[in-house]
């Protein structure tokens, strides 16, 4: 019996599952660096985060929405991975459970599941934890390559924390004792390969860029968002740096430190929460860049990537409405 169907009769190999798998693969190098740096606790954090995200998704879909399970589409795994990447290694397990609940149930399933959420679920989870438990969320472990079982945990401030602190210490009263000074800022090479304190996934620029290149080759993402995001942050901080010659505006430090590269390659390129057209994506990325710089330089928090992306997520439906592709044949003469 011959089959009848409408055109087209062939399809691209890349389906949703393949895309999600590629993203997981692209995240692996950064995960490895995180585990290498922070040892067993990082591994536990990553596994807990993934497991709890998948669990929450399964529970909501099966028992709340009463639909067939959607955990096979890898999206919960990605959310879990990204959430873990945005957490410090020392975070207690119960906080991860709360964070993943916020990410999956509130950030994603409440909007209707994959493809319908407005905000990046992993960032929703992170920001919730960040605001609720600021102490635990800013306990940055120092990397130690020879101590996998975490026999000797030392904590310290992140690069951005130090930069922020310079600002504070320059004023008359110093707030805390034993503040780190500029000498504790790691050099560029250590920041690039990831031998520095911070969240599990954000430390190594090298590993993240490798993942990004993999995604570009697989055509999962386009170059626009990472380029314009990183570019705008670099541009604005160099302008500030040139104008003031102040080390806290050092553009390369800003590029390599904090969650900027993780955000630019993996969070700001999330399909669902970003605009659909190239033009819209560029505007989105520029907005993210400007907001990140503003929060980093003038905000209360040392890091602004997650807030910047979440704020721009809220704008992406609006951007989609006003910036779309030019229809063929409507060129103005």
């Amino acid at each position: 019996m011959l089959k009848v169907s409408t055109a087209p009769h062939m399809f691209a190999k890349q389906d949703t599952n393949a895309i999600m798998k590629d993203v997981v693969i692209a995240l692996l190098p950064a995960a490895c660096v995180g585990i290498f740096n922070f040892g067993l606790t990082a591994l536990i954090t990553i596994i807990t985060s993934i497991a709890s995200c998948v669990m929450w998704e399964y529970l909501t879909v099966r028992y709340l929405l009463k639909k067939p399970s959607t955990i096979n589409d890898y999206s919960a795994i990605i959310t879990g991975l990204l959430l873990a990447f945005n957490l410090p290694a020392t975070i207690p397990v119960w906080m991860i459970l709360i964070g993943s609940f916020m990410a999956i149930v509130v950030g994603k399933m409440a909007f209707g599941g994959l493809g319908k959420n407005v905000f990046n679920p992993a960032l929703v989870g992170r920001v919730f934890l960040f605001i609720s438990f600021p102490v635990q969320m800013t306990m940055w472990m120092k990397p130690n390559w020879h101590d996998f079982f975490n026999r000797d945990i030392q904590t310290g401030a992140t690069t951005l924390g130090i930069l922020k602190h310079i600002d504070a210490s320059s004023s008359a009263t110093s707030l805390t004792h034993g503040n780190p000074d500029i000498s504790q800022i790691p050099d560029y090479w250590h920041m690039f390969i990831g031998y520095t304190g911070g969240c599990i996934g954000e430390v190594s620029a090298l590993a993240l860029i490798l993942g990004g290149i993999y995604l570009l080759i697989k055509k999962v993402i386009t170059w626009h968002i990472p380029f314009y995001y990183l570019g705008s942050v670099f541009l604005f901080s160099s302008l500030m740096w040139l104008a003031t010659q102040d080390i806290k505006f050092d553009p390369i430090t800003h590029l390599l430190s904090g969650g900027l590269i993780l955000g630019a390659i993996f969070m700001a390129t999330d399909y669902t929460t970003t605009p659909m057209t190239t033009k819209g994506k560029i505007i989105f990325a520029l907005g993210c860049g400007i907001l990140t710089v503003i929060i980093r330089f003038y905000g209360a928090y040392p890091e602004g990537v997650s807030f910047a992306i979440l704020i721009m997520n809220a704008f992406s439906p609006l951007i989609d409405k006003f910036y779309y592709t030019r229809v063929y044949g409507t060129r103005k003469k």
């Binding site: 019996m1 011959l2 089959k3 009848v4 409408t6």
Partner: peptide, 20 residues
């Protein structure tokens, strides 16, 4: 006599074929 492969609408099926 024929198998329709996920055609979503009668109007489309009518355009391309005589029907199942």
């Amino acid at each position: 006599k024929l198998q329709f492969d996920k055609i979503i609408s009668c109007r489309l099926a009518n355009q391309i074929s005589v029907g199942q």
